[in-house]
Amino acid sequence: MSGFKETLKDAVRQMSFRTSLESLKKKGVQQVSVLGIDRIIALIEAAVHRSLRQHFHGIEREAVADATKTEFLRMLRSNEDLQRQKSEVERQKERAEEEIDVLRRDLANQQQELNLKLEQSAMSVASRYQGENAAIAKKVADVLRTLSSSENLSVAVAEEKVMELVMDVVSSERKAAEEARAALRDREVETLQRRIGKLNESLGQTERRLQEVAAMKSIDGGISSIYRDVQGVAADDAHQGKKKELMAEIFKANLKLQRKPGA
């Protein structure tokens, strides 16, 4: 029997993987549940034993092997189901929390971007106008200088004329440009605002989902035992006689202890 146990141990060891506490911590795992190898072995052994006992007479090895497999899988599954249900809820919760974090960060970014954009455009408009004004003034001065060199024209009239002309051109240019720019800005702002609205909405949704998950609280229905029936000392136990004797003594002592008065 111990040979079998060793084989199982080896098999389990081969199937297991090693990881360091550090790397678990990096993954955000704070606590681990440890299932000792002896417990795993006991689990497997119990499965093997139970089906061996049920099929020992006459039936060929394959049936035993199949039954063992089924039994082991049944036990494993019933434990896994619960664990899965539980970890599924926990995963959902974690995911929702992560989502909310991402959304919050996103929202903050977008809002910041929007503010920046609005500030920037106000500033750049102001400085652009300043530059343009200077350029216009220079152009006007140039024109004036050319005109003043010709004699058969009153300077005042000429200036007025030129100014009128220039301002007309400039203001219409300006108007067109500003319209175009405003349109562009409005589009950007609008997109940003839409995105923020959407983010807000999904944030609310995720938060509601998180609340729902939290409300599900404990779905912990306990963990299945590896035994379906009461066991007793195994028939093939090398110390069967001695153990039975000891069990009887413990029982007797307890019977004495637990006998209710008057019973």
């Binding site: 035994y227 066991q231 007793g232 000392v233 069990m247 009887a248 029982f251």
Partner: peptide
């Protein structure tokens, strides 16, 4: 585990 059913 080793305790017989009837005792329990």
């Amino acid at each position: 585990h080793d305790m017989p059913a009837e005792f329990w």
